[in-house]
Design a binder for these strands. Structure first.
Lengths: 127, 127
DNA sequence: TTGCGTTATGTTTTGTGAAACATAACGCGG
DNA sequence: CCGCGTTATGTTTCACAAAACATAACGCAA
């Protein structure tokens, strides 16, 4: 009454991370954080939503901001709501490009992923 | 007399890792190790080539072997050369599929990567 | 039966990224 | 001018993956 039939696929999570020199890395975590910031208008709220400390969230933002020619997240403190943050235009473009990269990979890699899935469950279809 | 013109690209390294449940992960490290084993016929030699301890290499092999329905690496000990290891058929298929996935992603993601590269160097071309 | 190079494992130590904890500054609204 | 929620940063503690170190087993060849 739970699992209908045999394991469907157990589609693996496809994680793409692009690392430039140094420790500059763009990956799923930063992308998700950016989305959280765009959604909530706050670094702390976005971090909380991901179960991460404000400090860590802020560090990620700092790193992201420094790895592109323009900051991806703009923030301000004080004021009525205490402050806030939002994606810059560059930020939105980076996020969009990263998501596009993910999607393109997932699509183009579907055949290869299918082969791997087959090898994980059973190896009947030889050759 | 050094840098010919504008920044070439500084193509980021595209790392793809697919994580199934648990801690089961297939990524660049395991793929490279598999290639090393195929090339050298030895786990220890492959590990050495990557600057990693035998133990670590062996652990990776153990993990790989357990995440597919059939082992990817077959090993034997003792004998004239002390022992050795080689990729099983499943191993070769997994490696090939993983490399294909990488290649497909790199190709399909080229436009997105180009956009990101542009955002890293400068943001002239708007919209 | 000894020695060699490898596979196979166990135990201890270390390095480091993250978490936890602590403050400061900001700026508006009440 | 005080309090609130946020940004911003520093310091300390901790967990855990990786490294380092140690052994055992294997099987052939000499």
């Amino acid at each position: 009454m739970a699992e209908p039939s045999d394991t469907p696929d157990s589609a693996p999570r496809l994680r793409i991370r692009l690392s430039y020199g140094d420790g500059q890395v763009m990956g799923p975590g930063k992308a998700e954080l950016m989305e959280g910031i765009a959604r909530t208008g706050s670094i702390s709220a976005a971090g909380r939503a991901m179960g991460m400390s404000y400090k860590r969230a802020w560090q990620l933002v700092e790193t992201m901001n420094s790895m592109f020619s323009q900051p991806l997240v703009s923030s301000s403190r004080g004021g009525a709501k205490g402050g806030g943050a939002h994606l810059t235009e560059a930020g939105e473009e980076v996020l969009a490009a990263y998501r596009a990269l993910e999607e393109a990979s997932r699509t183009a890699g579907a055949p290869a992923l299918a082969r791997l899935a087959a090898l994980r469950s059973d190896m009947s279809g030889g050759k």
